[in-house]
């Protein structure tokens, strides 16, 4: 069953979306489907017909530019493998809630695993 993730990376060359675990655990492959954070490794392509898919390339080129600069400036990035997924999820949260509490941010980011950087610090920024 063709996965959205493979179509994005292999078919369209949009390699900003990463494959971490490939089994819905790590969140690295998060994209927005009709504005909702979704794991592209778990979405079969046939369910994407007529849906709006946004990847990290899409939001980085447009509305999220300022957000991304703040994200980098505050050290919310290290090895980069999990970063595109975290960026997408955090951006989606800010669309719904421009001033999330620390708890709300932790809740939203619970599905994005990060091994090397201080994810613990990110909600503060």
């Amino acid at each position: 069953m063709e996965r959205l993730l493979d179509v994005l990376r292999e078919g369209l060359g949009l390699t900003g979306t990463k494959e971490g675990c490939g089994e819905g655990e790590c969140g690295a492959c998060t994209v927005l489907i009709d504005g909702e954070p979704t794991l592209s490794c778990l979405v079969p392509l046939f369910q994407c017909e007529g849906r709006r898919i946004e990847t990290v390339e899409g939001i980085a080129a447009g509305p999220a530019r300022d957000f991304l600069e703040r994200f980098v400036a505050t050290g919310g990035v290290q090895c980069g493998a999990c970063t595109p997924g975290i960026v997408i999820t955090a951006w989606a949260l800010l669309q719904r809630n421009p001033a999330p509490s620390r708890e709300e941010a932790r809740e939203a980011l619970a599905g994005n695993l990060c091994r090397c950087t201080g994810i613990c610090g990110e909600p503060d920024r």
């Binding site: 675990c21 089994e23 932790r106 201080g118 994810i119 613990c120």
Partner: peptide, 17 residues
Amino acid sequence: DRLATYIIPTIKDSPRI
């Protein structure tokens, strides 16, 4: 041998450091 069964902390498991 994978992230579904080898459990690492999520952000909710992380204290203020």
